[in-house]
């Protein structure tokens, strides 16, 4: 598994690069903590008026927030910075070097940049998730746990594939940073379960930007309300999206090389 060895090397490089700025970790922790506090405050305000929100209880929503931060951190540790760098490399022409390497270009591009300190998001997200489970003594058995991990995996694959598709657009339209802004705006909506949004937005968040699968579905799984079929659907869709992103990336590479086929 050369991809795995590459992953290790890039993580080491990322660690080396950022270890010089240890104080950044504290800043990151502070920033994430502040972000999380404001979201939790919003939840508290909502639940001071009502007992459930679209069928979600406070503890379940806190778990959802935890998952939201876990996924956010995961994107920001590697996927987002790497693909952002890839877009810069397209502009500067440094991408040529990636193509002369005897390794899968998509793998190289996806790993190229690591922001270790963004693991703070993952850390705080995990804390929120665990605390909400323990405090409300939600029963999370093996089944729910397994479902949750599967749902999280499917969501991660979908978000990654989605980013690859967005980044691949750079082969045609040099400047796609703006499209990434759209992703972030949509992702922010994932702090609430998508079920509470009006229909059109719900569908956008489910099928266009896979926020529902990345955050809501895993949260449903952990609170024991995800059905087997919705999980299977998520896994199936993850496979389809991944295959599509892979195909699209290849088309992009061919375009870059100026191949007419």
């Amino acid at each position: 598994m050369n991809a795995l060895r590459l992953l290790v090397v890039y993580f080491r490089i990322g660690l080396l690069g950022e270890a010089q700025y240890r104080v950044n970790f504290l800043f990151q922790l502070f920033e994430t903590g502040l972000g999380m506090a404001s979201v939790l405050a919003a939840i508290w305000v909502v639940f001071s008026q009502t007992d459930t929100l679209g069928g979600w209880k406070p503890a379940e929503l806190t778990a959802l927030i935890g998952i939201y931060f876990i996924v956010l951190g995961s994107i920001n540790v590697m996927v987002a910075p790497s693909l952002q760098k890839f877009m810069e490399d397209i502009v500067t022409g440094n991408f040529d070097y990636t193509l002369t390497k005897p390794a899968d270009a998509q793998v190289l591009v996806s790993l190229s940049e690591v922001r270790i300190w963004r693991l703070a998001d993952v850390l705080l997200g995990a804390v929120a998730l665990v605390v909400s489970i323990v405090r409300e003594s939600m029963v999370v058995g093996w089944v729910e746990g397994g479902k949750f991990l599967l749902a999280l995996l499917a969501g991660a694959v979908m978000v990654y594939s989605f980013w690859i598709v967005l980044a691949t657009l750079a082969f045609w339209f040099i400047r796609v940073e703006n499209i990434l802004q759209i992703f972030w705006a949509m992702y922010t909506a994932g702090r609430w379960p998508v079920g509470i949004y009006p229909g059109w937005l719900k569908w956008t968040l489910t099928l266009v930007v896979p926020v529902a699968f990345a955050v809501t579905v895993p949260a449903e799984a952990v609170s024991g309300r995800a059905s087997g079929t919705s999980l299977l659907g998520a896994l199936g869709l993850a496979c389809v999206l991944f295959a599509f992103s892979r195909w699209f990336w290849r088309v992009g590479i061919r375009k870059y090389a100026g191949a007419s086929s």
């Binding site: 890039y10 490089i13 690069g17 010089q20 440094n94 040529d96 005897p102 190289l108």
Partner: peptide, 24 residues
Amino acid sequence: MGQRNQLIWDIPVIDSFDRNRVIY
């Protein structure tokens, strides 16, 4: 390519070499 670079900007040269060791 004279006007482009493949070394990683912020880290010691040797670590960029190490990356190529794994890639190749």
